[in-house]
Amino acid sequence: MKGLTPIVKKIAQLMCGMIFIYGIYIVVHGHLTPGGAFAGGIILAGAFILLILAFGSEVIKLRKEESGSSVSESLSLLVTLILASTGLLIGSKVFFKNFLPPGQIGQLVSAGAIPLYNILIGIEVAAAIITIFLALIIFKEEEEQR
């Protein structure tokens, strides 16, 4: 895939870091402010998609990225399930039990295990969207090579 003009590249370079930090903010503050895992994860994926669209890449590199993103997607969903099962083992036997102490409302570290779930599902959503995007690009590139 070919990249775009230098103007677009420069703007993408300047913007994508800020978009990435904004996505992390939305994910981490999911239990305090509007937003959360799904919105923040898609913003994170948007930063990557912006970079890939602006700079372009070779198929081999894209394939490496795709395998990495699908691995992190599966891993984060697995860790979410393990965390949920931990609630089943500790204390009262309820799946998805919020077993950590709730803390003070409004603090960044509060609400028990909810921020952990938010971060994990944020990674999962971002990786899933990137995987779908990369699979489409790789498919098109392979079509063109033939």
Partner: peptide, 16 residues
């Protein structure tokens, strides 16, 4: 739930 954002509290506690 201890979450200031009620939507996230419902999403990850009551309706996990």
């Amino acid at each position: 739930t201890g979450a200031a954002n009620l939507v996230t509290g419902v999403l990850w506690d009551f309706r996990a």
